[in-house]
Design a protein around this nucleic acid. Structure first.
Lengths: 211, 211
DNA sequence: TCGCCTCGCGAACGGATGTTCTCTCTTAGT
DNA sequence: ACTAAGAGAGAACATCCGTTCGCGAGGCGA
C-alpha cells in the first residue's frame, strides 16, 4: 500500500535533483521528459499518489506548485550569534527576547540538535583552558541560553562586576559566598560575593573549530 | 549604482518570504500583488535590475524561474554515516570511494565546517574515555576520513587484528613496533606489531551530543 | 528646450503548464 | 470469462505566466 512503484521513486528522485540544481520545482512536463514518461497525465496520476502517501504537497492550479515534504531534512540549521569572547574582559550584551540586534560581529551555523529545546541561544568564544577538564578548550565555541539562576554545579557564564569580566565556570553556592570552580586542577577557584556575581547564561553545548 | 530602491528590496524580501513559506518561487504576478505593484512589467523591470546586481538568477521563459543567490546560506549541511562504535569490538567497514552502502545504521547531520576539505568522511561513536585528555569523551561522535597512513602523533582509528577490535588512539612508530597512545594518563599505551595494525581513518573533528 | 535615461503603467501575445476526458492494457478477484 | 481497479497514453482546454510594446512622468546634462 505504501510501497513506491519504480516510476514513483524515480519521480521523487528527479524532483529532488531538479530542485537541488535549479532551486525551483519542476513543472509536470519537466518531470515527464526527465523521467521519460509519455504523458503528462501519467505524471499527474503518480503525483496524486505521492501526495496521498504524504511524500509531497501540491498547490493546485499553480505552476511548479510542488513541495517535497521529506526533503525538508536539510535546512535544520540555526544561526547563532557569537557575542564575543568569554574571559576576555568585555561585558557581554545578553540578547533580550527579541532577536539579537544588528551589532553582532559574527554568527555560527549549527544543526538544530546542538541547541535543541533551548531559546535565544547565543555563543561565545572561549579564551583559555580553565574548563579543560570539562572538555572545553581554548578556542572552542560554547552555546549558552540566557539565564539568571543556576543549580549548584552547573556551568554558567557569570559577570563579575568588580573585575569587569565575564567568565565560564561551574557555580557553587557556599555559606555567604559563591564559588566559581574552574575545571582545571591547576587553577584555584574564584570566591565572590553574591552581589558581585550575575549569571548571564547557562551552558548548553560546545563545538571545536576544525584544525 | 549598486543601491537598492525601496521597491527592489521589497521585492527581494517578498521573494524570500514566499519561498520560505511555500518552498517554490513566486510568479511575477505573485510578486506584483504581494508588493502592491500595478503592472507585471514593473516587476520584470526590477527583476532585471536585481539580476544585473547579482542578487538573483532568472531562467528565461520558465515560470517561477527565479533563484535567490544570496539566500543560499542554509543548506550548508552534510549527512555523515555513523558506521558503528569505536573500541566496541566490531570491525568497521570503511566506505569506499562510491558513497557508503545502504546498510548504514544511522547518520548525523552537521554543518560543512565540521568536515571542511575532507572527502568520504564517516563517523563513529566513542565508547570509553581513553582519549579524554584530547577532549574526546565517552559518547562523543568522531569524524574520520579514510586513511591508511598517518604521521607520528596523529589521532587515528586503527584495526587491531589479533584483538579483533577498532580503537581510536594517537599513533607513534617505534623501532620495530607501533605504540598506540591513549590520551588518558591512567591508561597504558598499547604496543603492537606493525603487521597487526591497519589504519582505518584519520581524526578530523568531534561533536558531543547535547545533555 | 531638447534629447536621454530611469521608473512606472496597462494591455496584449504566445508559450508554458496544470487539469481533465477518453481510450487502452494489464492484473487480480469472482 | 467478466469486472473492477491500477497504471498509462494522447489530446484538448483553460489558465497561468513571462515577455514585449507603446505610452507617460520625472530628472538631468547640454
Amino acid at each position: 500500500m505504501s510501497e513506491l512503484s519504480t516510476k514513483q521513486s524515480q519521480i521523487i528522485e528527479f524532483i529532488r535533483d531538479f530542485i537541488d540544481e535549479k532551486d525551483y520545482p519542476p513543472s509536470i512536463r519537466d518531470i515527464q521528459f526527465g523521467c521519460g514518461i509519455s504523458s503528462t497525465s501519467v505524471v499527474d496520476y503518480n503525483l496524486r499518489r505521492l501526495e496521498e502517501k504524504g511524500l509531497l504537497r501540491r498547490d493546485r492550479e499553480v505552476s511548479r506548485g510542488i513541495e517535497l515534504l521529506e526533503g525538508r531534512r536539510r535546512r535544520g540549521t540555526v544561526d547563532i550569534p557569537v557575542l564575543g569572547s568569554i574571559a576576555a574582559g568585555q561585558p557581554i550584551p545578553v540578547p533580550t527576547s527579541d532577536r539579537w540586534a544588528s551589532d553582532v560581529e559574527d554568527t555560527v551555523t549549527v544543526t538544530e540538535e546542538m541547541v535543541r529545546g533551548h531559546e535565544n541561544v547565543f555563543a561565545l568564544r572561549v579564551k583559555g583552558t580553565s574548563m579543560i577538564e570539562d572538555l572545553i578548550d581554548d578556542g572552542d565555541i560554547v552555546f549558552l541560553e540566557p539565564a539568571t539562576t543556576a543549580a549548584d554545579g552547573e556551568k554558567v557564564a557569570v559577570w563579575l562586576q568588580d573585575r569587569g569580566e565575564v567568565t565560564l565556570k561551574r557555580l557553587y553556592r557556599e555559606k555567604d559566598r559563591i564559588r566559581l570552580q574552574p575545571a582545571n586542577s591547576s587553577m584555584p577557584p574564584i570566591y565572590a560575593d553574591p552581589d558581585n556575581v550575575s549569571i548571564q547564561g547557562r551552558f548548553i553545548s560546545s563545538i571545536r573549530p576544525i584544525g
